[in-house]
Design a protein around this nucleic acid. Sequence first.
DNA 1: ATGAAAGCGCTAACAT
DNA 2: ATGTTAGCGCTTTCAT
Lengths: 340, 340
Amino acid sequence: MTNRSAGHPTRRPTMTDVAELAGVSLKTVSRVINNVPSVNQEMVDSVLTAVKQLGFRRNDLARSLRAGDSTATIGLAIEDLANPFYSTIASAVAEVAREHDTHLITASSEESPERERDLLLELCQRRADGLLVVPAGTDHSYLRLEIEMGTPVVFLDRPPTGLLCDAVFIDNRGGASAGITRLLEDGHQRIGVIMDSLAIYTMRERLAGVQAALAAAGLPYDDALIRVGVHEPEAAAGVAAGMLDSSRPPTAFFCGNNRISVGVLEELWHRDSDAALMGFDDFELSRLMPRPLTVIAFDLRELGRKGAEMLFKRIDGDRSWPTTEVLPTTLLERGVSRRA
Amino acid sequence: MTNRSAGHPTRRPTMTDVAELAGVSLKTVSRVINNVPSVNQEMVDSVLTAVKQLGFRRNDLARSLRAGDSTATIGLAIEDLANPFYSTIASAVAEVAREHDTHLITASSEESPERERDLLLELCQRRADGLLVVPAGTDHSYLRLEIEMGTPVVFLDRPPTGLLCDAVFIDNRGGASAGITRLLEDGHQRIGVIMDSLAIYTMRERLAGVQAALAAAGLPYDDALIRVGVHEPEAAAGVAAGMLDSSRPPTAFFCGNNRISVGVLEELWHRDSDAALMGFDDFELSRLMPRPLTVIAFDLRELGRKGAEMLFKRIDGDRSWPTTEVLPTTLLERGVSRRA
DNA sequence: ATGAAAGCGCTAACAT
DNA sequence: ATGTTAGCGCTTTCAT
């Protein structure tokens, strides 16, 4: 390992240095630093004086070197910290971590399964006490060994592959189903459904919910009204435009995520269409959108919190069978209208 | 320190275990693990076999225990990871960190100076190689010692107090000045100015820019048109409403940050006012806002990247005099209008 | 090319 | 109540 901090004016003092200056033993310094009560007040004073004089600061790396000791660190692997979806989760996880006096190392995989793997294994090398994963990869069997070695793992939002472990999900299927049902109740017979790639677990679940609701209503299945693999808002706008321009246009749209919602919304507003809009996942400023829309909302912070809490239970020794928790969704009316 | 992982079925194997199983010395294992070339191929093989069999994973804590060695970790202190402003910075910092094979520990102070201080000192205890700070606190002199001890620090967005060190800022003053100047060029004589608390450095700078531009234009200073200490969108809407309802309403608004912009925007839209709107700081979906607005934009990722790069220069041994960098702003026309 | 021994900074076990 | 010793898992002299 290269010494990246060569040539410092000062080297950080150690407990030995403090002990020497204070004229006490190393162990006494250790006791004082760790607030062990049974220490003579005079010694405490002289140690603290020496600590201040030298600018001593305990080396926590050395402290947690002992085998099996906690490093007071957990790791979180996400796809992209700049995305509000992930940063909201990260923030909630950090909050729980703080409650447990634990630091959080957040690592972005940039959607690369290899990077995700490398990151998680590196976190194991640093002896993180546990790991949270919003998976990007498609095989997580390599984590089995790490879990056996004592590093618990909890998955968020998406299930692991090739591995059984704790996880927290959103009720994608139920939410989508409820959304479609609402649209049907409102009298819509032709609903345009626009989804991102079905390679994404949540999209498969949401589509399944859509189909279940349509089937339950006995509505004829119209291929022209379902489009998957739409990734960008612009593409979503285009798809919506195409459907609206067809001979039998939809009277409502169901959007698989909020990027799609935004694209469709823009298209509807531009052409002053009064088609209804429902989107999965709320987004910032949705209440400011220039026309009414309904969103299937869920509590992302709760997802992060629940997952982190499950993880800390494991860290604290819980060895029970892996658990899966599913968080509910809510239908929310959003968007503003101008005052008359 | 409590042993939080007591009772594991397996304990993580060490290099000694690997050496024993492979029938070689500890040092040979170390060489193989660290890809030292001068090792007999047979030994390499037997070591790797043992590594695989035991599920060995090097303990990076132990590795970086040696004094002065890098921990390949930097720390970032921000106010709130859930806020896109900070998560964007964090993401950019993480990106640079990754380029340097370094992990990032991001800690939210929740706007508490004490927490900020605790966090930063804890990061020093874990021997982070360096620290980035978007400061919440008002005294950072305690960092001087840490810097002397070899932990470089770089400030982002706001300057340190009681301490001289590297920093990267946005050109708040120049940006605000340019914004006001543009409004004046557009013929506006009465500009409502709404700011958050002047306890915030960036607000003071922006207000100074506003005042400079107004003074340069020789425009009379009207107290009724300047309001500071506005923190919430709702409050901003209220302030805008008050100004608009006055006997001499403004024809344009200048908003100190995007929370204020959103509040004012909503008010303008509701009452169908055609007052011009200019806001400091772009925001997601600004181009979807239901009326035109101009934003003073800046590159937050660049702020994070620049700061991180300065930090790594220090970590790599740069001991030159502290530097301050100021990033430019741009005026951007935003908002959409409905198709005819 | 390989290995034995020392030590990184700290804490736990065991004296005194 | 205080100090001594050993050892965490690894890397680094220094021998061989």
